[in-house]
Design a binder for these strands. Structure first.
Length: 298
DNA sequence: AGCCAGGCAGAGA
DNA sequence: TCTCTGCATGGC
């Protein structure tokens, strides 16, 4: 079987960019490790990425134009020093940043981001990946890529809007099927204008997202942070809640709303970045504890 | 074999 | 405002 060779190549100088941490930090769910790098699909473009010394290398199968679509997704022009300088200077955050310096936020497509996080509720990240992979395999358009027959794009809202709840449930998404279907119908029907949210103030955009069934504060905040670039937004999930309670409020129990209120003032205008470092730090630590459980007995 | 997962909605106090 | 519960599914 002939596997088409990528025909276009781009090189993007970067500093402090940890591609592995970034693409495997639970903000995007379709990147797969391959050939020492990563394979994924952005919009209708298949992309492979590698970290090469002081640059990121990209391969694509269609005319890339000025590459702006990729530079903006990866935020290669964002200066990490500026981001880190906006953090409060405290031991927990220093530790978290030290563990994965170079972790970045992406700038994702709003529909894919919204749909993905609707599917994320009470699911492990591995499972979210599986459900999304299945959804794409069944309902995504084929685009030129690393496989001979093409690779699957993320399904458009209007494609999913035409599916029955049973068809969605068959992608193993359980009770989230009703939520995803309804979101797809409202987006496809123009009732929710995702493009228009860019121009709206943060609170208005958040309220618009929370109108969707199955979308509460946490999922709305993930979309506002990961797709719309609202850098101060601080999504609080179970991991981040654990991190805040353990690192900032040991032996106290705060209601989620109070924890969020603390986080959004304390972590400042780039709080969303701080949140991502804490999230990744806690996940990595949990993994190491699980793996190293035997060797701890010294 | 259970516990729990990048939550949310609805009900009840 | 806060707490409790049901919800599908499957990894570990």
């Amino acid at each position: 079987m002939m596997v088409p060779a990528p025909v276009f190549r781009g090189l993007f100088p970067v500093r402090d960019y940890d591609l592995d941490a970034t693409l495997d930090s639970g903000q995007a769910f379709r990147w797969v490790r391959s050939g020492g790098g990563w394979s994924g699909v952005l919009g209708r473009r298949a992309v492979r990425l590698w970290h090469r010394g002081d640059a990121l290398e990209a391969e694509v199968w269609e005319e890339p134009g000025d590459w702006r679509w990729l530079r903006e997704y990866l935020r290669v022009d964002e200066d990490l020093d500026d981001v880190l300088a906006a953090f409060p200077d405290d031991p927990p955050l220093r530790e978290a940043v030290g563990a994965c310096r170079g972790l970045r936020l992406l700038r994702q497509d709003p529909w894919e981001c919204l749909a993905s996080f609707i599917l994320s509720s009470t699911k492990q990240i591995v499972q979210i990946r599986q459900v999304i992979a299945l959804l794409c395999e069944r309902y995504g358009d084929l685009v030129p890529g690393w496989a001979a027959g093409g690779v699957r794009a993320f399904p458009h809202a209007d494609r999913l809007a035409g599916l029955s709840e049973a068809e969605l449930r068959a992608c193993r998404m359980g009770f989230r099927a009703r939520y995803l279907g309804e979101a797809a119908r409202r987006v496809a029907g123009g009732e929710l204008d995702l493009g228009g949210l860019h121009a709206l103030p943060l609170e208005v955009a958040r309220a618009a997202l929370e109108e969707l069934p199955g979308v509460g504060r946490k999922i709305a905040d993930c979309v506002l942070l990961f797709a719309y670039g609202h850098a101060s937004v601080f999504p609080v999930d179970v991991w981040v809640q654990r991190a805040l309670e353990e690192l900032y409020f040991p032996r106290r129990r705060l209601a989620p709303a109070r924890l969020r209120a603390f986080a959004e003032t304390y972590f400042g205008p780039r709080g969303g970045y701080a949140q991502q470092y804490l999230f990744h730090y806690m996940r990595g630590r949990a993994g190491r504890v699980a793996l190293g459980g035997v060797t701890v007995a010294e």
